[in-house]
Amino acid sequence: MNRHLLSMRDLSAEDVVRILDTAESFREVGTRVIKKVPALRGRTVVNLFYENSTRTRISFELAAKRLSADVINFSTTGSSVAKGESLKDTALTLQAMGADAIVIRHASSGAPHRLTTWVRGHVLNAGDGTHEHPTQALLDLYTLRERLGRLEGLRVAIVGDVLHSRVARSLSFGLVTMGSEVTLVGPPTLIPPEALAWGVQIDHDLDAVLPKLDVCYLLRVQTERQRLEYVPSIREYARRYGLTSARVAMLPDEAIVMHPGPMNRGVEIDSDVADLPRSVMEAQVTNGIAVRMALLYLLLGAGGEEG
């Protein structure tokens, strides 16, 4: 594995298996009364979040704490960043304070890459702009392997705003690496044809795709104003691409439904569908902690490499 986790494209199939297997061994820690191992005692992990995030930040925080690392949560509101400090200066400050790893969430694509040119420590991408969200993809791969027993040959549809989705990119790259068959589904304005270069299929008709799936992965519909020009209305989007109870019946019996959260119930997914046993969102969240423990452990601890 590389020194940083920036993109799923940097991981080989062997890397992914190693991460998922390591996560498997950490899964058990979360079921103990005392949910802690000493693997990263004395190491410092900084959560540097330039965007609001509940689940990813808390998940990383718990992952680091369960490994006994010291965790600093640096949120940008009310901090030096609010006073206009640059990303570079903030990073250098954190490095000077002894950060061994920086977990960064940022609205700008490539911000984690920029960070690696300025700091010596490990950089973990916790979501950058419309680029990638590799830890989400890895926890999704973990959940898929856990639920369906394999990744190779799985038929997965990723439905929604692929153009602006960092989840779609990371998950597509990861699934293709692991030998799954990926179809991107959504209106043509939100599915760039250049995505064919990722080794995926593209379809614009969800109903035609559903009967041939093992996994239906729904992306969150982003409702910021500038995103709305790509579809006539949220209502029309929900009508054509929302996973309704009627549509979920078209899935094969064993197929599962996934969503990275937070969900817009009634838009990309009906409330009833979200609460079905085949919808595995809770498992995704739980597995996220184990997968992030594995990543921190493999980057900071296991290799014996000093930051």
Binding site: R9, S109, G110, T130, R169, P192, E194, A197
Partner: peptide
């Protein structure tokens, strides 16, 4: 508008407008 680099395979993979 808002574009950061040439639109093509690479902009789409890099998540840049």
């Amino acid at each position: 508008e808002g574009g950061q680099m040439h639109e093509g395979v690479h902009s789409v993979a890099l998540g840049l407008a």
